[in-house]
Amino acid sequence: MSTIRVVWGAASAPTEMASYDAALAEAGVENYNLVSVSSVIPADADVEAVGTAPDLGPAGDRLTVVEARATTAGPGQVSAALSWSQSVEGPGLFYETAGETDQADVERRVREGLRAGQELRKWTFDEPSVAVESQRAESGTHTTALVLAVYGEGEPIC
C-alpha cells in the first residue's frame, strides 16, 4: 500500500454543492470521483498530513477516502475533524466528525470517538494525530469545511 494523505479545505459559494466543490479544490482533490470507506488504516500504510494533495492521477479517476465534512447556509460556522492512530501491530484507525460548530468542539468529539474505536480493538496504539478545518459562513452563502484521508493514488473507473 502507498501513502494515505490527509488533506483539508474550506470554502464558500452560492450553493451547497458549489461550496463542497470549492472546498475539494482547496484540498487539491476536486477533479476526482471520491469513494468513501470506513475508517481502518491498512497495516502497511503510511499516513501523512499534507494539507493539499499532490497530483494523484488523471481527472476523473476514483480516489478512496475517509471524509469528514460539514456544510451550512450562513451565517454560522462549520468545522470538520479527522483523527488517526496506528498500532504497533500494524493496522490503525481513522475517526471523523463534523458539524455546525467550532474547532474546539469537533476536535474534542473526534478525539473521544477515536478513543472509543481504539477500545474496541486489541491493538496497542501510538499517539493520535488530528487535522481540523473550520470556517465562518456569511449570510447568503453556503460554506463547507472538510478533512479527507486519501488512500493512495487515483484508479481508473472504467
Rank of each mutant, 00 (worst) to 15 (best):
A22E: 04
A22P: 03
A22G: 02
L24Y: 05
E26H: 12
E26Q: 15
E26A: 13
A27I: 05
G28A: 10
V29M: 00
E30G: 13
Y32L: 08
L34R: 00
S36A: 15
S36Y: 15
S36G: 13
V37N: 05
V37H: 10
S38H: 12
S39H: 10
S39W: 09
V40I: 12
I41A: 01
I41K: 06
P42I: 04
A43Q: 07
D44W: 06
A45L: 03
V47A: 04
A49L: 12
V50A: 08
V50L: 09
G51P: 06
G51A: 07
T52H: 10
T52K: 13
T52P: 03
A53N: 08
A53L: 10
A53Y: 11
A53I: 04
P54Y: 00
D55H: 07
D55V: 06
L56M: 00
L56S: 02
G57H: 03
G57F: 10
G57S: 00
P58R: 09
R62F: 15
L63F: 09
V65I: 14
V65M: 00
V66S: 04
E67F: 02
A68N: 05
T72Q: 08
T72Y: 05
T72N: 11
G74V: 07
G74E: 06
G74L: 08
P75D: 01
G76Q: 03
A80F: 03
A80C: 07
A80E: 06
L82K: 01
S83M: 12
S85A: 15
S87W: 05
S87T: 06
S87E: 11
V88H: 05
E89K: 01
G90P: 09
P91R: 02
G92I: 11
L93C: 05
L93Q: 12
L93W: 04
F94L: 07
Y95G: 08
Y95M: 07
Y95P: 04
E96G: 12
E96Y: 13
T97S: 07
T97E: 00
T97N: 10
T97A: 01
A98V: 02
A98M: 06
Q103R: 14
A104C: 01
D105P: 01
V106A: 06
V106I: 12
E107M: 13
E107C: 07
V110H: 03
R111F: 10
R111G: 09
E112N: 10
